[in-house]
Design a protein around this nucleic acid. Sequence first.
DNA 1: AAGCCTTGATCAAACGATTGAGCATCGATT
DNA 2: AATCGATGCTCAATCGTTTGATCAAGGCTT
Lengths: 344, 344
Amino acid sequence: MSTLSDIAAQAGVSVSAVSRVLSKAPSSRVSEATRRRIEDVARELDYHPNFAARALKLSRTNVVALVVPDLTNAIFSELMRGVEEAAAELDYMVLLAREESVRPTAATIAKLVGEGRVDGILVQVGDDMTVDDLSGILDGAVPAVLINSRRDDHVGSVVLPDEEGAAVAVRHLVGLGHSAIGLVNGLPHTDSAIRRGIGFAAAMASAGLAINPVFITSLGYNPQQGRAAMQTLAALAERPTALVVANVNAALGLLAEARTLGIRVPDGLSIVAIHDTWTAENAWPPLTTVRMPLYELGKRSMTAIFDRIRAGATVDVVVDDPPPELVLRESTAPDRQIEPTNYE
Amino acid sequence: MSTLSDIAAQAGVSVSAVSRVLSKAPSSRVSEATRRRIEDVARELDYHPNFAARALKLSRTNVVALVVPDLTNAIFSELMRGVEEAAAELDYMVLLAREESVRPTAATIAKLVGEGRVDGILVQVGDDMTVDDLSGILDGAVPAVLINSRRDDHVGSVVLPDEEGAAVAVRHLVGLGHSAIGLVNGLPHTDSAIRRGIGFAAAMASAGLAINPVFITSLGYNPQQGRAAMQTLAALAERPTALVVANVNAALGLLAEARTLGIRVPDGLSIVAIHDTWTAENAWPPLTTVRMPLYELGKRSMTAIFDRIRAGATVDVVVDDPPPELVLRESTAPDRQIEPTNYE
DNA sequence: AAGCCTTGATCAAACGATTGAGCATCGATT
DNA sequence: AATCGATGCTCAATCGTTTGATCAAGGCTT
């Protein structure tokens, strides 16, 4: 790996001259001749600025950490794409970190920032961790932006239009004639679950439908928890005819559990899940979902942390373009009570 | 963020003394008293060594890059866990990079190593990239280890027992009485597909079964390609009664396609997929799979790159402990031709 | 022709950590 | 009592970049 002084030696100039030319500083004041000579030598020696030296001098790494609960969750695919794309445009790199559980994560984050490895962090908290668990970190001097959750003392956040997402799902089911609609939600304390609950309630209200409290579960977003929700609902004397499942992974577990319980989807139960993934498309029946702007969530999050780092600006954004969109597949059907076939 | 000199000042000693104490060098030669004083001050000031400074001085970052084709693939979950766990033990950090397509990756890797951000790379190539595409990088001075693929000029590799994995699947199906067994494999040029193909053939041979070449497809590991394979096989006049699908994700797509084609699983077609994931468990019917030692693959890969970095040792390893294990679920059934029920 | 910009470069001091070499101090040896 | 070898610490150079300060050499003004 060649250094500035290698180039300087070979081009017969000083190190500073080389540095100024290659870092493209506008204050350069170099003759066109030497500029060209330096650039040629740099190319020839395949020069790349040493990351550590630059970071040390500038006390800035141009790296942000993205911490998510579970990297392999298909939901994060688009999110990460958005973050990385925006990062590339801003000349930043993304350091992916996953959050195994509360302690390791706090420790990992502390290490990342304490050792000066990153300029800022993007954190999406999972079920096992509340934003408060991170307060020690977020209160610190590290620029941070919360993805899809908020805190009172706003540290900066970018969230999805969760209310609208849930509302889109409800409206679809209402349009199919359902009235006994349930909600399989995330854990009660999580931010997105709260917003999805609100959107659900609002949409039900504006459709003139009553909410049956026993039709609402708040057990979590993962497949196991989806299965548990299905069991709970199946045990009911009177059951919902349709379900809004707040997360596609939970919906997959719920769907599998419905099969083992002998509940037919969509004939006996309509399901619409929030978030669209390839797994939804390949489920049986293929799941009707509400696609959320995850890519844009990622992009916006990255620009938000950038603004925070460079200008100290703190923003709280809702990503609403494009809006949540229904992806119609085969897990929803008209409610039998009002089906024309009933009258034949 | 406090520095060594902050501590030195507050403890009334020189920077070197602090450095020696905190880096726990055995050559330290410090009195117990000053050692304690320094440690106390360091704790009080919440000292963390500056990453950039250390990396610059030691020309070593203690970071390795892990590049995988698709981070959100559930298969990599265990792999990554293994890598990270081993890394933590060795005091290394893992920088996750994903491989979008050929060019960006080569560029990304070049950047990572060229700028000295990482000490080595762990690369798992995907379908879109052959190991040869990376030759420019692998030939270079960067320590690298290939995960689940090999090259003639061995640069170091750690692979799964793919032959045995495929064989376990075949033996299960043979045990159920199947003889018309097909293989839905990965792309022909990929290393793991070749090994799985060999294992399949060997197991068929030792069961005394003939392989019908038209029962073998090599379209790839993803769900779409699995669907395509199902279409191809469904179009056959004579069809296989059982399928070894070389990848769960392909199996999921294949399963969904089977449903739309009206092929019943497992009654009309038995399926066993390689790799066990939560998606297999939540499919319908739940997929019988062969669990491969992915966690151990990760651990072994990390120790291999470590040995490469520290000692220059190049190894080619097959991870065979624990061995591939059948996870019996509901996507396989006895072959009807020899079912006892036929003779009732 | 003396003084003064402008241009095009170089000097040198950081950034924070590591580490070989050097230097007191002190108890023990001859 | 002079010497020696530990012991316990400090000095200072170094890693590769960046950047304010400096400086030489012309070209302009007056």
